[in-house]
């Protein structure tokens, strides 16, 4: 995949994918959160490399502030609070297998879908799709609510990657809308988890199975 003129970016993109795969494999919550922060840091570097100039630095700063520092801290606090830092059944053991399969399939399939883009965009788009899918796979394998939250952020990272690489920044209104929406989603999830806590519902995803059929 890596072609000469995308050398550095290609390497960074591959690093993103590797970190996503790592997130599928690691167990204890704190390790996951650490990897998440590392992934965000790579994303910040990509922002600087892909969009040279002030815009790139601003984007990198925002990412550093929110994704490298803010969100991991919040997640860590939640993990402490819910006592799932060292949870044994954090995610399903087969996750890495699914991840590898996804990487294989997408690498084979993607050239068709990126034909016609310039090589740099093609690589970063492929990476974004991969990170999205790996995040989704992580949500599928994550057995604790917190694990799912971590992987939701991975999906978000994939989207960021695409947004940074392809467009050099979305229109401000759209960015704003997306950010407000994200905030509201977090708010709603917090409200719901308050209810979950109040009702003493399990924090284990598989046990939320009252509704079926």
């Amino acid at each position: 995949m890596t072609v000469p003129e995308t050398g550095l970016l290609g390497g960074l993109a591959d690093l993103l994918v590797v970190l996503s795969l790592g997130l599928l494999v690691v167990r204890p919550a704190l390790w996951s959160i650490g990897l998440l922060a590392a992934q965000a840091a790579v994303l910040a570097v990509i922002a600087v490399v892909a969009a040279p100039g002030a815009g790139g630095w601003v984007a990198a700063g925002v990412i550093l502030l929110t994704k490298v520092v803010g969100i991991p801290l919040v997640l860590q606090w939640v993990a402490r609070r819910t006592g799932s830092e060292n949870a044994v059944d954090w995610s399903a053991p087969w996750a890495w297998l699914v991840g590898a399969g996804i990487v294989l399939v997408v690498r084979l399939a993607l050239p068709t879908f990126t034909a016609g883009l310039n090589p740099q965009h093609a690589v970063l788009l492929g990476t974004a799709v991969l990170v999205l899918l790996l995040g989704l796979a992580g949500m599928v394998s994550g057995k604790l609510l917190l694990a799912q939250a971590v992987h939701l952020v991975v999906i978000e990272n994939g989207l960021y990657c695409a947004g940074l690489a392809l467009t050099g920044g979305l229109p401000a209104a759209l960015d704003l809308g997306a950010a407000v929406d994200l905030l509201l989603v977090i708010f709603v999830l917090a409200w719901l988890s308050h209810h979950v806590h109040r009702l003493q519902l399990p924090l284990h995803v598989d046990e939320l199975r009252r509704l079926r059929g």
Binding site: L125, A128, L132, L152, I155, E156, L159, L166, T167, L174
Partner: peptide, 12 residues
């Protein structure tokens, strides 16, 4: 989130 990728792609 998946649909947002569509928006990004079409915008690009």
């Amino acid at each position: 989130a998946l649909a947002l990728l569509t928006v990004i792609l079409l915008y690009a």
